[in-house]
């Protein structure tokens, strides 16, 4: 039997004595594109970081049936764009190459094979010809694509992406959605923290609805309902359409 891609049991995360995530239980089968939605401050980012062991938390997390530390080579990560210093002296190609470091291990330098992988990944996100550009001289969408290329270079089976669509242009959004489809068709599972409720139902297979605690999770058609949206967004909306229209203006 194939274990679930993600299995979370009684996950609790507190930050400065404030409960951010409260007793999350969740099991997700792959391959799938999984949207993680919820209002600001719902703990979506923290949820990803808790799974990845980036913030202290209690409870059990298994990815591909194993503890996270045993499967790190099979995991890809796209952090929030604001999490790094874009003035850092590295080029687009350097950043994509970082995706291969995990496989390389200690001391070994990336060689021709790694460079080829990085180059291919940059092509897949449409950044050909920008390899040598310093990352601060990119548009927001190009920066986001650079991060995606780096995650692709990890050649992972499960991807975690923290708001990859935040503040990107329409063409980048199209590139990212196509890429997500490619990944799912190749048998991968991708977890995406996502703000734009307009695209959730049409572009993702499953949804995790979060507001400090888990409101609902499962296949889109079953779970993405007005009632669950009202609960997730604290009943601010009366109808599904209203919630979706509102999400379009908050970002």
């Amino acid at each position: 039997m194939v274990p679930p891609v993600l299995e979370v049991d009684d996950l609790n995360t507190t930050y400065q004595r404030r409960v951010v995530l409260d007793a999350i239980d969740l099991s997700v089968d792959g391959p799938a594109l999984v949207a993680i939605v919820g209002p600001n401050g719902a703990g979506k980012s923290t949820f990803l970081k808790s799974i990845l062991g980036l913030v202290p938390c209690t409870g059990s997390v298994r990815v591909l049936g194993q503890p996270i530390d045993s499967v790190r080579r099979r995991i890809g990560y796209v952090p929030q764009r604001e999490s790094v210093d874009w003035d850092f002296p590295v080029s687009v190609g350097d950043v994509a190459l970082m995706g291969t470091y995990g496989r390389l291990g200690w001391f070994r330098r990336p060689g021709a094979a790694e460079r080829r992988v990085a180059q291919e990944c940059l092509s897949r996100v449409g950044l050909d010809g920008l390899e040598d550009r310093q990352i601060g001289r990119l548009s927001g969408g190009q920066q986001q694509r650079t991060f995606l290329a780096r995650a692709l270079a990890q050649q992972a089976d499960v991807y975690f992406m923290d708001e990859p669509m935040a503040g990107v242009d329409a063409s980048t959004q199209a590139v990212i959605f196509d890429l997500l489809d490619e990944l799912r068709d190749a048998g991968k599972t991708v977890f995406v923290v996502h703000h734009d409720l307009r695209t959730v139902a049409s572009r993702f297979d499953r949804v995790v609805m979060l507001n400090r605690r888990l409101i609902a999770a499962g296949p889109m058609a079953e779970v993405f309902t007005t009632e669950n949206l009202q609960q997730t967004y604290d009943s601010q909306f009366v109808t599904l359409d209203e919630a979706i229209a509102c999400s379009a203006t908050t970002r």
């Binding site: 990845l52 062991g53 995991i75």
Partner: peptide, 22 residues
């Protein structure tokens, strides 16, 4: 010199480095 790649990654993106298991 030996840890150039590791230090580069650590300083540029600590969380990403952590996810890779460093």
């Amino acid at each position: 010199l030996a840890l150039y790649k590791e230090f580069q990654l650590l300083i540029f993106d600590r969380d990403f480095a952590r996810v890779q298991g460093w």
